[in-house]
Nucleic acid binder design. Structure first.
Length: 349
DNA sequence: CAGGCGTGGAT
DNA sequence: TATCCAAGCCT
């Protein structure tokens, strides 16, 4: 596509968008905070998955002040099952910053909004353009896929610096009168038409598309990186005490499943001496019962082979720092990871 | 920069 | 079953 065709391109794109766009909850509001929440939830997450979470979250935390004041555990419970849990801790931290340091007004320049926790280049552009009408690029995976085809850009989108190429190109093409609709229209196109297996015959702008012109739409975008996943064996100890309570510990804030409570567990230990390993790593003294369950859980970058072991705590055992007993009722209120939920499900059998 | 960070759906 | 994702950000 030539830049001289910009006006005609935007006319086609935007009229298609206004006619075909999906009716989504965050498209029914102009509240910048709600837009912010939706954009964070949508990071690496499908629209259909996000919708119910978004509705519940906004209902429970209708204002930035209400989110800023909420208990982290309560907030995390609203994110349970969505994944990438650091997103919600960063969101709350960012909202607190806005409430406390910006008089509850979200900054309206890229440099300022980028300072907020959890707001990166994409989310900055998305909030600025959608909530405030600022002509800023918001380049995500959709935009790179669509633009790589429109302009026949064959650079590897798996390499971080490649994104700059797309950000520049967006700024050349963006509709200055309605940057909100422009950014959303490109993403909508990527999500519904210009998908990995594109449906070019339905595309409103195919006559501007260099890849379609040359029949290369199926070869773009170029993306090289492949994920290799580690496999880790996890032995998880469901330790009960006479009162029927379960002994849990809190995971560190950083890293996988940050701040989640879990059964004490050890990684990659020889099966024969697992009680000894647990004692070495945690100080806990237990009497092991029989292994009661075994399953696999696949995270984005690591696979856990989980073996759940039932055990009772010996009277002589110390309770290490950071460990707590939970009744069944208390357990219900905790945010739980998928592996934790699977273990509990098995426990009830 | 490379790698860590969840989950459920599509192929 | 295996793979790759889907509106990225942080360190």
């Amino acid at each position: 596509m030539k830049i001289s065709q910009k006006e005609e391109f935007n006319e086609r794109l935007l009229s298609w968008y206004h006619q075909e766009k999906r009716d989504l909850p965050w498209r029914r509001t102009s509240n910048p905070y709600y837009i912010w929440v939706s954009e964070v939830m949508l990071q690496q997450t499908r629209v259909d998955t996000v919708i119910p979470y978004y509705e519940r979250f906004i209902e429970s935390f209708p204002t930035m002040e209400s989110l800023a004041e909420a208990e982290e555990e309560h907030v995390l419970k609203h994110w349970e099952g969505l994944g990438y849990y650091s997103r919600v801790r960063n969101l709350q931290a960012g909202v607190k910053e806005v409430v406390e340091s910006y008089d509850s007004k979200i900054p309206q320049t890229r440099n300022e909004i980028l300072k907020l926790k959890g707001i990166g280049p994409y989310t900055a552009g998305a909030v600025l353009s959608i909530a405030y009408g600022v002509p800023e690029h918001a380049v995500d995976g959709n935009v790179m896929r669509v633009f790589s085809r429109l302009f026949l850009i064959e650079e590897d989108i798996a390499i971080p610096k490649t994104k700059k190429v797309f950000e520049q190109r967006v700024m050349e093409v963006i509709d200055e009168t309605d940057p909100s609709s422009f950014n959303q229209a490109i993403m909508e196109l990527g999500a519904t038409i210009c998908t990995p297996n594109p449906r070019c015959l339905l595309c409103p702008v195919r006559e501007f598309c260099a890849a379609f012109e040359e029949g290369k739409q199926d070869e773009l975008p170029v993306k090289t990186k492949k994920m290799k996943k580690k496999v880790v064996t996890i032995r998880s100890f469901a330790i009960s005490e006479p009162g029927g309570k379960w002994l849990l510990r809190k995971r560190p804030s950083n890293g996988l499943l940050g701040d989640f409570w879990e059964f004490p567990q050890i990684e990659d230990s020889p099966a024969l001496e697992i009680s000894e390993s647990l004692k070495n790593e945690t100080g806990l003294l237990i009497e092991q019962r029989q292994a009661y369950t075994q399953f696999k859980h696949i995270f984005s970058h690591v696979t856990w082979l989980v073996e759940g072991v039932h055990a009772v705590l010996l009277d002589a055992s110390p309770i290490p720092e950071g460990y707590r007993f939970f009744s069944e009722e208390e357990l219900e209120l905790l945010p739980k990871s998928k592996p934790m939920s699977k273990l509990l499900e098995q426990l009830k059998k």
